[in-house]
Structure formats: structure tokens, C-alpha cells
Amino acid sequence: MDHFTLKVKRSTRGQDSDSTQAVYSVPMVAESMSVLDAMLWARGNLDSTLAFRCACRVGMCGTCGVRINGREGLACRTLVSTEIKYSGLVINVEPLRHLPVVRDLVTDPGNFYRRLTDVIPSFQPADLDAAPVAIKPDSSERLTINPHRECIYCGLCYSACSMAGEDREFLGPAAFNRAFALVSDSRDEAGTERMKAVDGRSGIWSCHTIFECTAVCPKGIPITQAIQGLKRKHFFRKVQSLFRLGRPS
């Protein structure tokens, strides 16, 4: 059976000084073998101390996010055969960036979630007594929001984003995506607060449309478009407030 080499960056408590690279020779047990399968095989047969996160194994939960051969991806959705085709018989796995490493490939997503809460990520209904608001499935509002509802909060975009690397306070693509989805929802009433939250230096204005987030999103969400949408909404609000001659937008 063909073997390939799995290299995993290992460390304890994220101390880069004592990070090592574990090298495992893993057999290709099936054509459909994923990087997660490889990690599970290594852990089960070679080294039971290897630490990583996983849950659903089918790309729904977003738990197994890692960097494979220098690029963010879900371990369960990345096929070994595809990686071998592009990068040869060595597969390098590292933890996600911009988050503290707990051990090996396990990161502490605290900051990622904190940035999310900054944008009020839950739906705030406008008027609870009004008749149910119907947004037709083919309405432009619904079609605009649809792709952005797919987020599984896997954190790949946050890891890929250069700006998140520069500024730990940066809200990040996932937060902006969620903010956009809710701000575009006509039934929600917290739009103004969210627009304020994404304003400022650690907000949307630090996004330089590098598109790294959109490139790695496992759900194919056009994240940069959401951020651009937020910038445009800001622009229109400024224009509106100018015409209202100083009344707060």
C-alpha cells in the first residue's frame, strides 16, 4: 500500500520555542482518505499523544480547521490524494493562525468568538407584536442574505486574514459576514449598533480586500463581498446624514 508522510507541528501551550515537527508515515488506506483520517490513523496507530479537534467529520461543524501545506482548510474535507497531487507525498499540518495554541493543533478560539459577540451576532427582532414579517424566498433581500447564512464559524477566514495577524482587535471576516447578514435583514432592529461596531480602526476600514478569507471559506461564502456591502452601507448612511444636514444617521 502507498504511504505518504504526515508532518504535524507540535507544541505545548503554544510555546514556539519548543515546537517540534512530528513525522509520521501513514498508509493511503482509501482513495477518499482525508487529512483528518490520516491524523486519526497516526493517533490510533503511532502516537496517541497527538492532539487535534474534530467532531462531525463531514464538514458541517467547523471544528477541525487547520493549515494544510500552508493553506487553511477543514481536515475532514481535504483529501490526501488532492494534496499529494499539488504538493507531493509530504503533507504539512499546522494549527490555525492568530489564535493562541493550546497544544499541537488545538487552538483557543476565545478571541475569535469575542470578536463575533462585538457585532451582536444574534437576531434582534424589531417589533414583537407586529404581524409575522414575510420575506419571500425569491426577494432580493433573501437572495442577498442567503450565501452569508452558511457560516459554520470554523475560523479559517480569521486565520487566513492578514489584517487579523496585524491587529488582535480586528473583528475579522466571520464577524463582518454575520454583521452583514443581520444588517441586511429588514426584520432586525440592531442594525445601527452593528454599523457602529464595525466602524473604526479595527473594523471594516482595515480590510484591504485581499480576498484571503473568501479563498479559504469551506462554505464558499463571498465574505469580502459582505465586507464591501458594509462599507457601501456606511457610505450611503454618510450621504443620507449629509442631506439631513447633521441629523444623526
Partner: peptide, 20 residues
């Protein structure tokens, strides 16, 4: 708390530098 620190100078938040 959201980071409302508008440290980008001119205007509130980073809209004006971006726009101009």
C-alpha cells in the same frame, strides 16, 4: 465591548480616510 476607538483621526471611524 466593541472597539469604538476611532483612532484614525479625521472623521469618526475610518470612513473618511478610506473614502478620500
Amino acid at each position: 465591548m466593541p472597539n469604538l476607538n476611532s483612532t484614525q483621526g479625521l472623521g469618526n471611524g475610518g470612513f473618511w480616510p478610506w473614502f478620500l
